[in-house]
Design a protein around this nucleic acid. Structure first.
Length: 277
DNA sequence: AGTGGCACCTGTGTGC
DNA sequence: TGCACACAGGTGCCAC
């Protein structure tokens, strides 16, 4: 599910429930996600949650007894449960893998059918930002250090398709397969172009569209995606706003020519062959 | 160093 | 209805 906007919305949704509360209990099952659950996660029991942040598509939970790094993978979802009938162990459903029980009566539960997600514990003397997962990441697309100049410099060094380059987390984080197609459409750039072939002006356009598209999607998701009962946050979403993703064979919203679907780097890519050069 | 290909999983939809 | 297969929003690792 999650691209950057959904992770941001999830983070904003759970932050008020988590911050300044005590983690009473940590539970995880015996399946593995991207990596196996570490028994050290139990060291979070009794910890005070100090802060909750997002970096790229990761959620970082800082506590008095170490930090927790959460990634939702393709199908991960966090729900906040407070209804007593949802709190018991017997209320756990298929693919529930991890849980934090808080001293405010709320349970944060992680469900992930494909198990491409990640739950990683860092002891107090280690910074998640210096660990393997976060250390080498590129700039946040919505921060001021992600600029057209930066993007131009980063793309000029790469010969691969521009679509793959903007999905590379060392170039910029948070642009997933859906948004890659969308922002290239909005910038009128053909996804198969070599990254290094983009002009300065095209990078300015692309940089602006990345920021605009992600910001707008966060605004939209803010009201619909996270819900307290965790009923499953699939409704809403931003599907209605997509111009090309999933629109193979349909008319381009700009020129009415047929949207094409093509595989680039093993992933489906959608574009208008007439508008995008 | 940069790049392409694959692996990790399960669920869903399609075509026979 | 059953089965085989393709495909799905992410990312790390491997060999060139």
């Amino acid at each position: 599910m999650p691209e950057l906007p959904e992770v941001e919305v999830t983070m904003r949704g759970i932050k008020p429930a988590l911050k300044d509360t005590v983690i009473n209990a940590v539970w995880f099952d015996d399946k593995r996600l991207r990596e196996p659950f570490s028994p050290d996660l139990k060291r979070l029991e009794g910890a005070v949650v100090l802060d909750v942040k997002r970096r790229a598509k990761y959620i970082v939970v800082k506590t008095s007894q170490g930090s927790l790094l959460i990634h939702l993978g393709m199908t991960g979802h966090l729900s906040m449960l407070k209804d007593p009938s949802d709190l018991s162990e017997s209320s756990r459903k298929l693919h529930d893998h991890f849980e934090l029980a808080l001293n405010n009566g709320i349970v944060i539960r992680y469900n992930d059918s494909r198990r491409f997600g990640l739950i990683h514990y860092y002891p107090q003397d280690e910074s998640p930002y210096e660990g393997d997962y976060l250390r080498d990441l590129g700039p946040e697309p919505l921060e001021d250090d992600f600029t057209a100049d930066y993007l131009y410099g980063a793309l000029s060094k790469r010969k691969k398709a521009v679509k793959l380059a903007i999905m590379d987390a060392r170039v910029v984080v948070g642009v997933g397969n859906i948004y890659a197609s969308e922002v290239l459409f909005l910038s009128r750039i053909n996804p198969k172009r070599r990254a290094c072939s983009l002009s300065k002006a095209e990078c300015e356009l692309l940089c602006r569209e990345i920021k605009k598209t992600l910001a707008r999607s966060i605004e939209k998701g803010g009201t619909t995606i996270i819900n307290f009962q965790g009923a499953d946050g699939k409704m809403g979403y931003f599907v209605q706003d997509l111009n090309v993703y999933g629109h193979a064979g349909k008319p381009c919203p700009v020129c009415a020519n047929t949207i094409l679907q093509e595989v680039i780097g093993q992933r489906s890519t959608y574009y208008c062959p007439v508008c995008q050069h």
